[in-house]
Design a protein around this nucleic acid. Structure first.
Lengths: 230, 230
DNA sequence: ACAAAAGTGTTCGCTTTACACCCATGT
DNA sequence: ACATGGGTGTAAAGCGAACACTTTTGT
């Protein structure tokens, strides 16, 4: 095969968080290396004999001290051979969701700082990370309509309006509250608790939980989640 | 980072072809290496300074002498560190469609043989390639319903029944011919030619072509292809 | 009593679905 | 004339979309 292969393999994660009607992405500022001082996605090189998922989880732990609720592979970026200026590097990007209220970010090891950035205010990032974020946002928007994925961004118990706002915020569209609620409830994957949430003025809201067991059971029977009204 | 990274990066392709109401996958028999004599997906190691897409296209050319109609990234398999018994190898799998009537397979360089296998008769493959094929089939089934991708498997000019059969074959379900045709035509992305196809007995069929320009234009205006009736 | 957010039904139109017969050609 | 595959319309049901007022709480 000629000269022995000299390609580095990295993982990067686009981690989304949601709070106060805003969507955030987790970014870290590198302490070392070529991207020193620049903001970038959490991630790094895969270790020998380490699986890709392990690598992502390790990096998220090392660089931000968090564990995510949801993780899936996003895309492998390797068509731009010069994405990392030093080496031919291929990066397997992951897509993750987390409820930021559950974790306090703590920059560790390689990271000088770790912070949530509203997706409307993302700075220029290292490497091709701005592109990766963009792909991540597209994925999030897409998935929201055909997979009940929004719950991984919310508290375990949430008022209906949180879900509503999550959809309007992320998809950037208004929705009809009545139709949305009707549809969501028709799936029968939300469980009403007998707790109430009171915030300031206004009528207190019932709290709901997402019944994942039930959802999985339904899926096995051919059920297909879909929210179009948005 | 301790010991320097020693992970090999490969690409593999799940290439689908369709002919005589059957769905095929392209497999090759390796001439060299650990998988010698076993059937496997076309693919191989990425070269230094080569993009992933280039690598796939090169391998498809070298191993089977073909160019595909459609190519997209499928998934990166790297969670099973032992998938290749010798080394820690990560493989970026691609998904491709081709019209097999356009090409005569010719095994070249590294391949001892290259052949189309009906997806119902796929032998035990090298590495984790059976799993990759499975993921590819899922992707194909999914895409068929929300992207006009079936045309890449057919001749440029095709009778409506070919399209119909393609859907029933791949999705493994019966469809209502009238509804299917009505829906397809309603999208206004098929163009009627004034040619006819006569095969044996039966009424001759009009030939259609897929108008990709028109489709792309419609997509820009927010059009969304979807075939549910299947 | 007023402001703020939660909760709730109905009607209209379009899309999906189900369904069966005639047409053009070859043998 | 019969076998083979191509081509076509209509009615009923279900789903999506549009729409506004009442309830419960805080101030």
């Amino acid at each position: 095969m000629g000269k022995t292969q000299n390609i580095k393999l990295a993982v990067d994660a686009v981690v989304f968080g949601y709070q106060n009607n805003q969507l955030y992405v987790l970014l870290i500022k590198q302490r070392f290396g070529i991207a020193k001082g620049l903001w970038s996605l959490p991630g790094g090189f895969v270790l020998n004999n380490e699986s890709l998922t392990q690598a992502v989880e390790r990096e998220l732990h090392e660089e931000a001290g968090i564990k995510v609720n949801y993780l899936e592979q996003l895309y492998t970026f390797g068509d731009d051979v010069k994405r990392d200026t030093r080496n031919h590097t291929v990066s397997v990007a992951y897509f993750a969701l987390v409820n930021p209220t559950k974790w306090t970010l703590k920059a560790d090891t390689d990271a000088e700082d770790a912070q949530w950035f509203p997706i409307t205010k993302i700075p220029k990032l290292a490497y091709d990370h701005n592109k990766i974020v963009k792909v991540g946002i597209e994925r999030l928007k897409g998935k929201l309509t055909y997979q009940p994925i929004g719950f991984d961004l919310l508290d375990k118990e949430f008022p209906f309006s949180d879900l509503e706002h999550l959809y309007t915020t992320i998809l950037g569209k208004e929705i009809d509250r009545r139709n949305f609620r009707k549809k969501m409830l028709s799936f029968d994957i939300l469980q009403e608790t007998n707790k109430m949430k009171k915030v300031g003025s206004g009528r207190p809201a019932k709290l709901f939980t997402f019944n994942k067991q039930k959802y999985n059971a339904l899926v096995k029977d051919g059920f297909h989640f879909e929210i179009k009204y948005v």
